[in-house]
Design a protein around this nucleic acid. Structure first.
Lengths: 160, 160
DNA sequence: TAATTCCTGAGTGATTTACTGGGTATTATA
DNA sequence: TATAATACCCAGTAAATCACTCAGGAATTA
């Protein structure tokens, strides 16, 4: 679980797709000017997102990118993993006795933390972002995961 | 909120200090051979940790590093922020109308996610790691934050 | 005084980031 | 059918970061 600007670019771009899902495909050129990232760099990122089946491209005029799955089944963790290839957990990959036997169990502790972090980010989906405050009241009786992050909902308005 | 191997090094090193807190200061040489990181690199990391008052150095023979605060008041988020200097949130830093007005609100959404992530990591302290399973039963009536990560507790035994 | 440790800084190869610029493949539409 | 808009692909590159070596100092203890 690594987290850098690259991951942020991917997540925000995916948010963009999720928000404009029903307006047809979103072009990379739009996202590029929107987010201030170069088009070629976006292409690299979307190549990875495509391999992970998180998006699908539509060629030709009027084309662009669409989500590969419904937005409520795409988690932030998935996006980051697709783009920011994971950290090599340590030299002593799971080996019980790294270097000096019972010492150095911090590696195991880190791994547990890492899993915790993953589970947290995996509990946040794209659809949690595209809901509007009016929807919030209705979604209260949903599962606890989406309730936990209800506070970050924002109204959405995109110029065409 | 950035997260790389650098942050992992810092967190595991701090875990090491927390575990061996009552055995006197821990030397960087120990951590170095333990974690397989070069001593000079550790020195660079600890310079930052020291500036953030998270550790304090003890010079001379028998010296080393100690925690700068009680382990229950040092969060994982603090450590990471001290070492992995934060991501520049975006060009349009908080400016209401980035580039094309009402568009591009994904930045705001990302920031909300970022805050969420920070709060999560800030709720996990070093002391949550150094507890042993026997302590687990007792700590049940503690605050909810530490209960949430009870499952990652492990017995600790360090060779002297 | 000597050994041990923290502390500081300069320099370096490797990797990652983010970009430029060249193309090809597909498709809507004029 | 021709053209333009788009995804897709690949090679190269400047800058930043990562992780390290080396080379010393400064403080403390034995």
């Amino acid at each position: 679980m690594k987290l850098s600007t690259k991951g942020r670019y991917a997540v925000t771009a995916m948010m963009d797709l999720a928000i404009n899902d029903r307006n047809g495909p979103v072009t990379l050129a739009e996202i590029s000017s929107c987010q201030g990232i170069s088009l070629s760099y976006l292409e690299q990122l979307f190549a990875k997102l495509r391999k992970a089946r998180l998006v699908e491209g539509v060629r030709g005029p009027g084309g662009g990118y669409r989500l590969g799955k419904p937005s409520n089944s795409i988690s932030v963790a998935e996006i980051i993993l697709a783009v920011d290839e994971t950290i090599d957990s340590t030299q002593c990959q799971g080996a019980e006795d790294c270097q000096s036997g019972d010492r150095c169990m911090t590696h195991k502790l880190w791994e547990d933390l890492s899993v915790r972090l993953y589970e947290f980010l995996n509990g946040i989906t794209l659809s949690d972002f595209i809901k509007r405050p009016e929807v919030k009241r209705i979604s209260v009786q949903q599962n606890s995961t989406s309730n936990r992050i209800n506070k970050m909902f924002q109204p959405v308005a995109r110029a065409s």
